[in-house]
Design a protein around this nucleic acid. Sequence first.
DNA 1: CTTATATATGTACGTCTGCTCATATGTTCA
DNA 2: TGAACATATGAGCAGACGTACATATATAAG
Lengths: 117, 117
Amino acid sequence: MAQKETCNCLHLPLETVDNIREIMPPEDALYDLADFFKVFADSTRIKMLYTLFYSEMCVCDLALMLSMSQSAISHQLRTLKQMNLVRNRREGKTVFYSLADDHIKSILNQGMEHIEE
Amino acid sequence: MAQKETCNCLHLPLETVDNIREIMPPEDALYDLADFFKVFADSTRIKMLYTLFYSEMCVCDLALMLSMSQSAISHQLRTLKQMNLVRNRREGKTVFYSLADDHIKSILNQGMEHIEE
DNA sequence: CTTATATATGTACGTCTGCTCATATGTTCA
DNA sequence: TGAACATATGAGCAGACGTACATATATAAG
């Protein structure tokens, strides 16, 4: 698609190109990785995760906590669930959501470290 | 905006609400954090970062390496630079880009760990 | 100064995203 | 069964995003 539009400088030795192609994860993994980080790329979802650090919580409590509509929260919880970041359990009419994973906190913390520089 | 639309269940004791509000980072930080993760939320940029793990590289080499147009790569490098993920140095006509930080590798690795489950 | 090369940037456009609004589903209680 | 409540979901829209295309800037060489 682009080869002809690019320059000719090629400072890379050809073996380097091969080396990098070996290090590079497969295409599928790269897409999945991007999708994974997409979940953290929205402040509403980040707030939801921080809130769930404290304890499990039902949909309406999250909505009240973040001053957002029940529908918006529910849609976002769906996203978080599809990425396996939250679990849920039903108790009568109420559905409680909780964090599915401990990676989450450390990933957010590492992000914070980078921000605070 | 939403209070009236939400339910009345409030399983949260009010002191819990206060506790969470204390734990929650300030609004600005949450936005910055989301913006930070947005950088990782695109497979092109992830490929660029993986490539730069190997060594510094000029714009056209990155374009060739990833089979993308010089313009697209240049725009993305701008994004990466604004988020302080890459540095650059000029050498004649050529501009070399390199990773600005070691957090980056560990953040991508942690993301990968979560994916591979 | 002119030309060639490497990079940067402005504009435009199709696509994706997050929210709202309306409505459906699921559960409890009378 | 029907009303009330909690949650889920579909459609639609405004704004953000990634890329292509055209063009500007910067450096080197002649």
